[in-house]
Design a binder for these strands. Structure first.
Lengths: 245, 245
DNA sequence: TGTTGTGAACCGTTTCACAGCC
DNA sequence: GGCTGTGAAACGGTTCACAACA
């Protein structure tokens, strides 16, 4: 008995690997510019070139959304755009709260691209009385006292944390108690949450430190030495985007 | 004949996997707070708990820096801090330029944590005449005309790109021509560079979209349906930090 | 002919499990 | 007894290579 899964255009979101989830928005952006230019079809080779990915990866990624392509021709741009939109539910925006209106929080609020394709801010919060009540990108900064009420009212599940590391864990506990289950954390600290809560860590300073590391490697390689005592080396680099904690 | 590698405390930086490179700064931050508190020893279990990592991962990561631990006791905090410092050459800061003094650029310049542990800004640049000449975090914003001169003067290899997507590719070509080989790109665009150039992509909007995706998955799972036609589902999430392009 | 969709090989990373050592 | 360092298995993701097909 075969379970009735994968109907005509049905596919299983939860089977989409994380790496693919992170690439689909990249494809989406490229395809949308194609759409604006009236281009109707694209091959995995061309999309791969523009996205910086191997064509086989592109095909494997898109195949997760169903069998969207046409052999000998390529992918219909509009079809793929629609399917990615469906997967990310860009049609029904997800309410998001942002906590911490410092420099980074302000930058994100004002950024055109950040709250885009699904997520929509419904409230921004800070602990500093000097900041509370000011307006930022059309939102009045609220006291953290209002967190629970706003989360309940809009059924918020996603929070963006742009506050300082010492404040983060305490706020997270309130958020989780209020029903938030997805956190995007910019604070340089490891958060401890119940297992049903998902956290993405973005640590900008680590990204830069990693580049410094690779520069050091390259310099030592040219100088022909290991760290500590002398040694023999060979190798090179290549680079990427995101990982886990 | 065995090549003379790995002396007393010698180790091969280029053999350190990327995943480990991204975790070492996390350990470093935790260990430094331990050091300040006068704690001298830590086990992989405790460090793992604080870093959100499996103890075996911690041991494997630290073992890349040499055999630093003591069986039965754990790791000497000061020793590990020193070794991570050496690997990241935090002692000899790497000069960095930042291009694009918009909201995000400003946020990074003012952030305490961003230029830390190695990287040090030597110049910040923008194309907008309104912004050029203003001061930001102690740096006068320079015209992009000055890029080549500053890069040559300080032997800059690392650039942080916080400019808008349409400007990015053009600036990157100038940077690469001037000798920059490591790029930290915040613009939502895939950059095309010669193969000796390393790029790290940080796309903040994708991070948030990924969370939106997982919320959608969870909602559909509870609703018991796949995307497209109906279907049968089971599964859950779990999350991370960074990947590649 | 040209391009997709995918089995199978490959590769980097994580985790288990335990021998080795303090 | 407790904890490290590491073989070996497991896992997730990428890429090759080719059959299927418009």
């Amino acid at each position: 008995m075969t379970p009735m899964i994968d109907g005509a255009s049905g596919f299983h979101l939860e089977r989409i690997p994380e790496a693919t989830v992170l690439r689909l928005p990249v494809y989406q952006r490229i395809l949308q510019t194609f759409q604006r230019q009236g281009i109707q079809t694209i091959s995995s080779a061309d999309l791969g070139r523009l996205a910086g990915e191997n064509p086989a990866s592109v095909r494997r990624d898109l195949s997760r959304l169903g069998s969207l392509g046409t052999r000998g021709t390529g992918y219909d741009v509009a079809t793929v755009v629609d399917q990615i939109d469906r997967a990310f539910a860009s049609t029904s925006p997800k309410p998001v709260v942002l906590i911490g209106v410092g420099n980074l929080g302000r930058a994100l609020i004002h950024s055109k691209g950040f709250f885009h394709n699904g997520p929509t801010p419904v409230g921004i919060f800070d602990a500093d009385p000097e900041v509370i009540g000011t307006t930022e990108g059309g939102f009045v900064v609220q006291s953290q006292d209002a967190l629970e009420a706003v989360i309940a009212e809009h059924q918020v599940k996603i929070a963006v944390l742009t506050l300082s590391a010492p404040q983060a864990q305490g706020v997270v506990e309130r958020l989780v108690a209020a029903g938030v289950t997805y956190l995007l954390n910019f604070a340089s600290i490891t958060l401890h949450v119940p297992s049903h809560v998902t956290i993405r860590y973005v640590d900008l300073s680590i990204e830069l430190q990693a580049l410094g590391f690779y520069q050091t490697v390259e310099e030592r390689r040219r100088g022909g030495m290991s760290v500590g005592s002398a040694g023999i080396l060979t190798s090179q680099t290549t680079m990427g985007r995101r990982t886990k904690r």
